[in-house]
Amino acid sequence: MKALAARRHHRAAPVVLLLLALLVTGGVYAVLAPSPATAETASTATDVEEGQRLFQANCATCHGPNAEGTPEAPSLVGVGAAAVDFQVSTGRMPMQMSGPQAAQKPPQMNEEQTAQLAAYVASLGAGPAIPTEEQVDAELGDSANGALLFRTNCAMCHNAVGAGGALSEGKWAPPLDEVSEQNIYQAMLTGPQSMPVFNDANITPDEKRDVIAYLVEQRDGSAGGLTLGSLGPVSEGLWAWVVGLGLMIGAAVWIGAKSS
């Protein structure tokens, strides 16, 4: 009867598993990552010390031994933990080589090291803290309001559904479909690289969550079928030629060919 029982539970199993996984992840996260609201206070002195060691080893060449900045790289005094977490957890920093802009790559530091670095930089001067889980929970956001805000403030660079777009001189606004909710929030808050800052007066924390809700909703894809990259009329035109005209001309060749 075991097999039968298993089958009976089968349908609910993924949901249960998912919930469990979420709980576990959340729990682990809560243990590992210091709560952002308390990030600056709760990070221990050892975190800061360890962070400083990591900073000296990985970042000081460009940002200066005390993060005061050099001609190559900006000062990090006052950028806050959120900026560090964004740059390091998306692999943008430490940078491998200079280019039009720092590209996303596999992160070089693990979560603990990232947190230590963030703690160190946060200790240099007050700045935006890492957002709490509740602040980035798409479930709590209003995607309609998010759509409105995204359209006015973000779509011109990141495309209407966050598929990314080009900036000048080889820079680009990255696609957002695989960016974590935390990172989206941090990017708005800190304005990394070319991106302007959208502080809490411009887009309030609740509104930031609305934007996240809108972006997460886009991950369901399109009601019309394949999204074709959500790039708009150019990709649609390309597919019209390749698929539409391709198939039709193929059919025409068949119609015109003599039967054997």
């Binding site: 403030n153 302007p196 502080n199 411009n202």
Partner: peptide, 20 residues
């Protein structure tokens, strides 16, 4: 601010901000 219509205080704009 567009689209919310909230007036903007000069002090609220951080350096590097862009507001529509």
């Amino acid at each position: 601010y567009d689209p919310t219509g909230r007036p903007i205080r000069a002090a609220d704009l951080t350096v590097g901000s862009a507001a529509h």
